[in-house]
């Protein structure tokens, strides 16, 4: 196939996935959360069980006035939502969905690329908080930064363990080296990675940076309309990316029965299940306090990930 056309097709495909999956996760969150609380959730928009609720929300957001506070740093303020959202789009390009090159673009150091990009997403909320000229926003942004510092390390360590196991940092390469017994072997690393990812996305129970009962909505306090919607979308895109990444790194991505033909389906199913867990955790657990949050990262997650690396190293030496 013509390489340009091929690239354009892949880009369009990734874009479509990027538009559809976060909305699906958002809608699932509406419904799952409602039913976990004994409610029905949205029922009217779209007619059938409120399937179009997020579309209606989007229309509402578009209609709202786009306000920039007087004291705000205009350019940075307006740029922040894009900085928050775009990294996830870029990450999605590098995640292999199925075998035989079913991936937006093959990046050689895919694992590092992906992790670095996910870290950039947090920059968006930092920019937003600093540019808003609002003390709540600033507090939220600083909490985001502190959280990023604390949780990036265990995440990287946990990911490094997988890279060690596979002997490569390319995501498709990682997947082709995968065996089913990696799942128990890398279990601890997977848990650490997933938890740290949740914290980095500022999802409950790690949503201290947006703790609405203390600092209104953290870095996003001053945002309205479409820019606010972009931040929300970034959160859901982040969930999709985190879940996809966890399933690729620790659950074998497209591996499964008949993976030759329906491998992409396996990736989707695993991602969906993890997304459900993300929602489930949000419904079940209260928010951690800031000091608990930090303590959890430094005294639990980092030792655990170091242990995982040690375990990986030992097993690797034994089997080689």
């Amino acid at each position: 196939m013509n390489p340009t056309l091929d690239m354009v097709l892949r880009a369009v495909g990734v874009l479509v996935v990027f538009m559809v999956l976060p909305l699906t996760v958002g809608q699932a969150e509406h419904k799952v959360m409602a039913h976990m609380q004994g409610r029905l959730g949205p029922m009217y928009a779209g007619g059938f069980h409120g399937w179009a609720q997020l579309v209606a929300d989007g229309v509402k957001f578009v209609q709202k006035e786009d306000i920039v506070p007087t004291g705000a740093d205009r350019r940075v303020f307006q740029l922040a939502p894009v900085v928050a959202l775009l990294p996830y789009l870029v990450v999605l390009i590098a995640i292999p969905v199925g075998p035989h090159g079913f991936v937006g673009a093959t990046v050689d150091a895919g694992l590092f690329f992906v992790l670095a990009m996910m870290g950039v997403g947090v920059l968006g909320s930092l920019m937003a908080g600093w540019a808003s000229a609002n003390k709540f926003s600033l507090l939220g942004a600083l909490r985001s930064a502190a959280q990023l510092m604390a949780y990036e390390l265990p995440m990287l360590l946990a990911a490094a363990s997988v890279a060690m196991a596979a002997g490569t940092v390319s995501l498709p390469g990682l997947l082709s080296a995968f065996h089913w017994w990696w799942i128990p072997w890398q279990l601890v690393g997977g848990l650490v990675f997933f938890t740290a990812g949740l914290a980095e996305l500022q999802r409950p129970p790690f949503d201290m940076p947006v703790a609405d009962s203390e600092i209104i909505f953290g870095a996003y306090t001053e945002y309205t309309g479409l820019r606010f919607a972009l931040f929300l979308l970034a959160e859901y895109a982040g969930i999709v990316v985190l879940c996809a990444l966890t399933s690729v790194l620790y659950l074998g991505g497209w591996h499964g029965p008949w993976s030759g033909s329906v491998g992409w389906l396996w990736t989707l199913v695993k991602t969906g299940l993890l997304a459900f867990v993300v929602i489930w955790l949000r419904v079940s657990y209260p928010r951690l306090r800031e000091d608990q949050l930090q303590k959890f990262a430094w005294t639990v997650l980092i030792p655990l990930s170091l242990l995982q690396i040690a375990l990986t190293g030992i097993v690797k030496v034994v089997i080689s």
Partner: peptide
């Protein structure tokens, strides 16, 4: 987690 999961399988009260 069990409590929320169990609630999800029950009929809603809405």
């Amino acid at each position: 987690l069990a409590v929320t999961l169990r609630t999800m399988t029950r009929r809603t009260v809405t």
